[in-house]
């Protein structure tokens, strides 16, 4: 129980910091909004196209806003050497990792809700909100995958002199299965295409379990000095 306790303590700490004006969440939301506007210029988003473009646009926004947010939170952690004091506290590397995954997951989910809402408003596509219950499993599993890999890699890149700029180069190729799964399952459900959404959910679940196990084993190697 102590294990879960320290993970939750880290989650609480991150929420507090965010409330006190560490601006990583607001930056994420701002980027999402900006990307939605840019996609509107880049693609023909007329009434008849929105439904087929929705899953692609949304997942690109989720991916890039997510990279920005996760890169920032771990950079802040490294800058203040905050993680050092955590290392000396009874919280082990594993519960530290789980706590960070949870806080990243929370911020990603907030960003996604915000993005979905603004997508519905800006693209006049209320259907996406009414279909949210069906879309939820895919969204959650995909976001969890983002958070699992993103937390690990964002801590890795803080050690490099290029910093968070390096994050997309490591992170994007690895999460390709999640992006494929997220886009495809959402597209299948939104447009009522023939079967296969369940299969994508399964692939994303396998990805999540695999990366949860491996990251848990490896995380202590990237924060030990």
């Amino acid at each position: 129980m102590k294990f879960a306790g320290s993970a939750i303590a880290i989650l609480k700490k991150d929420i507090l910091l965010e409330l006190r004006g560490k601006e990583s969440l607001s930056l994420m939301l701002f980027l999402s909004l900006l990307l939605l506007v840019i996609f509107n210029f880049a693609l023909d988003t007329g009434k008849e196209n929105v439904s087929s473009l929705a899953s692609g646009i949304l997942w690109v926004v989720f991916t890039f806003s997510g990279i920005l947010g996760m890169g920032r939170t771990s950079m802040a952690e490294r800058d203040e050497d905050a993680y050092l004091s955590i290392l000396f506290s009874p919280a082990s590397a594993e519960s530290f990792y789980i706590g960070k995954v949870l806080s990243n997951l929370l911020f990603l989910v907030i960003m996604e809700i915000f993005t979905l809402l603004f997508f519905a408003i800006l693209y006049d596509f209320e259907k996406i909100i009414s279909m949210l219950p069906q879309l939820l499993p895919g969204l959650l599993l995909g976001t969890l995958g983002f958070s699992l890999v993103g937390t690990l890699f964002s801590f890795l890149t803080t050690a490099s002199r290029y910093g968070e700029v390096l994050l997309p180069f490591l992170y994007l190729p690895v999460v390709v299965p999640i992006i494929l799964g997220g886009v495809s399952s959402m597209d299948i459900i939104l447009n009522g295409k023939a079967g296969g959404a369940g299969k994508w959910i399964q692939i994303m679940a396998v990805f999540d379990v695999l990366y949860f196990a491996v990251s848990l084993l490896l995380f202590r190697y990237i924060i030990e000095e």
């Binding site: 690990l152 050690a159 494929l180 299969k199 990237i222």
Partner: peptide
């Protein structure tokens, strides 16, 4: 750190292979 990347990247191969096939 690069050992961690070497491991993470490699275990992705079967998942990528399966996902792209599907």
């Amino acid at each position: 750190y690069s050992a961690v990347i070497g491991i993470i990247g490699y275990i992705d191969i079967p998942v990528i292979r399966y996902a792209t096939k599907w």
